[in-house]
Simulated assay, not measured.
Amino acid sequence: MRSLLLLLSLLYGGLALADDIQLSNGDWPPYLGEHLPHQGVASRIINDAFASQGIDVQWKFYPWARALHLAERGELAGSAVWLRSKEREDQFFISEPVIDSRYVLFYRKDHPVDWRNVDDLAGLRIGATNGYDYGAAFQQAEAEGRLQISRQTSDELGLRQLLAGRIDALPLDQVVAYALLNQHFSAAERAQIGFHPQPLRSDSLHLLLSRQVAGNAERMARFNQGLAQLRSSGRVAQYLREVEQSLSLAP
């Protein structure tokens, strides 16, 4: 009888240590996506960091604005992945960096673009995607009318506008651009596209956990601990390298 009680105590004690968390997510291959392997490499990193702490992630996929709104209201525990901002710091616990994002300017190789600062882009027809923030200098130049910006509904549409010669340049996350080009464009179309190596913006992207949800401060501490362990093990670098190699980004 004593052995049975001990076994039950260990069993239910182990179950008590288990936890789960519901997070919103969006569509941004290869980092995030409902139908991607592991729901994207950023989702994979978050999954594994939480799993190392005994927390199981349940992903809920929405358009970006709704994904953030549900997390802000605490209807879901949090959302992945986002830029850090003062406004978000007021609403969320913000993790250590999950991935880094590097935006560069893409162009057609028969019409290359050279630049050092945003004023060098004056006179060019520049594409951009609705709702995207391309950095303070770019956003200010757009607001002041110093740049000729044509906002589109998606990065893919922007690339098609670029290929059609309707715009001269398009800022894109370099890894996302390669994923789009590999998935939606022919080899002949891909061969027409180049990019300038100078970053328009470089930022880290983070997991957000709502301050409206009880226990999220402790969950974030556990997540950051798991993320640090994942990095030190080399698995984060391995996951990112696998993605880059699949997109022919790695040397």
Rank of each mutant, 00 (worst) to 15 (best):
P171F: 08
V118R: 01
L32G: 04
N216L: 05
L240V: 08
A71K: 08
S101M: 15
L249E: 09
I99Y: 09
K109I: 08
A51G: 10
N224Y: 00
S248D: 15
R116L: 15
P30V: 02
N25D: 05
L230D: 00
L17N: 07
Q183P: 04
F195C: 05
I46Y: 07
R166M: 10
L17P: 05
Q238R: 10
L207Y: 04
L240E: 10
A250F: 15
L68C: 12
P197W: 02
L68N: 13
V57C: 04
Q225M: 08
P199D: 02
S202N: 07
A217V: 11
L147D: 02
L180T: 12
W64Q: 14
E87Q: 14
S24T: 05
V41W: 01
A128E: 10
V113L: 06
D27V: 15
P37W: 12
L8R: 03
W82L: 10
A128S: 15
N130V: 13
Q245G: 03
L4E: 15
S150I: 08
L227E: 00
Y103V: 13
Q140E: 15
A67H: 10
R222V: 01
S154M: 08
A187T: 02
V113G: 08
K86Y: 12
V57N: 01
F61E: 08
L105A: 04
L11S: 10
K109A: 08
Q198V: 06
G158R: 01
Y239I: 04
R66I: 13
H38V: 09
E244Q: 15
A42Q: 02
L207Q: 08
E189V: 12
F61V: 01
R108K: 03
S202P: 07
G226E: 03
S154G: 08
R151C: 05
I126T: 06
N224I: 01
R241D: 06
G26S: 11
I99G: 09
N25K: 03
A136W: 10
S210D: 07
L7D: 01
Y12E: 00
W82D: 01
S52K: 05
H184V: 03
L181A: 09
I149R: 00
R108P: 07
G145H: 13
I193K: 11
G33F: 04
A71Q: 10
Q174N: 07
E189M: 10
L7I: 01
S79P: 11
Q198S: 09
G74K: 06
S248L: 11
